[in-house]
């Protein structure tokens, strides 16, 4: 464990807490893409199956349990509890256009052709594009609530910090995992135009609006 990975995990935790707080406090999931949340639940479910087979540390286990539980809790809030506020008309990204190519790629490019490893690879690839429905929804509505932009910023920073962690581990531990690194870079690149808007607008107290 290093400070970059730890701060990445904290940023990830923060993003999830911000999202839950936003939905719970405003009793509304307006502007939130349910499809991205479904993809995240799929990401954690397929990645953390090793919860039962390998123990890394109490921290690792606790975080895995929290990520799985919170992703399903978010889906419950969006599709059941506050479904009246779910903006179905703007959450129209076709998930199958993400899941199917990622599934094929996981079978073709992986470290080991075993069920657990292919599911882990699928999860890594899926996570890199899971935010697309959400970013698509923000571009479609042309704006996002400030709290939602903080959620996206924390979520984007989590994998950006993981990239620093991978550089650190390469130089100090001689460890690297190309699948995680390439997917992590793709994932972070997808946030770049959002990061630009967040820094130039939200941090100056303006509303996050996209040129429609």
């Amino acid at each position: 464990m290093n400070v970059f990975r730890l701060s990445g995990d904290v940023s990830h935790l923060l993003a999830i807490l911000i999202l839950l707080m936003k939905i719970w406090k405003t009793r509304s999931c307006a502007g939130i893409s349910g499809k991205s949340q479904i993809l995240f639940a799929l990401v954690y479910t397929t990645r953390y199956l090793d919860l039962f087979t390998s123990f890394i540390s109490p921290y690792n286990t606790a975080m895995k349990v929290f990520f799985i539980a919170s992703s399903y809790a978010t889906i419950y809030l969006i599709y059941l509890k506050f479904k009246a506020t779910y903006d179905r008309n703007h959450d129209t990204f076709r998930m199958e256009f993400l899941v199917l190519p990622v599934l094929v790629l996981a079978f073709v490019v992986n470290h080991d052709f075993t069920p657990l490893e292919i599911l882990w690879t699928f999860s890594i690839y899926l996570e890199s594009v899971a935010i697309l429905p959400q970013l698509f929804m923000v571009s479609k509505t042309g704006q996002a609530e400030t709290i939602t932009s903080h959620y996206l910023f924390a979520l984007g920073m989590y994998r950006a910090l993981y990239i620093v962690n991978w550089v650190y581990r390469y130089y100090f531990e001689g460890f690297y995992d190309l699948i995680a690194i390439i997917a992590g870079v793709v994932q972070t690149v997808l946030y770049c135009d959002f990061f630009y808007l967040y820094v130039t607008k939200v941090l100056k107290g303006k509303q996050l609006t996209l040129p429609a």
């Binding site: 995990d9 090793d50 390998s54 975080m63 470290h111 080991d112 995992d177 699948i179």
Partner: peptide, 10 residues
């Protein structure tokens, strides 16, 4: 690709 024994990252 090299086999990664155990994924210790989240």
């Amino acid at each position: 690709l090299q086999v990664i024994s155990e994924h210790d990252e989240l």
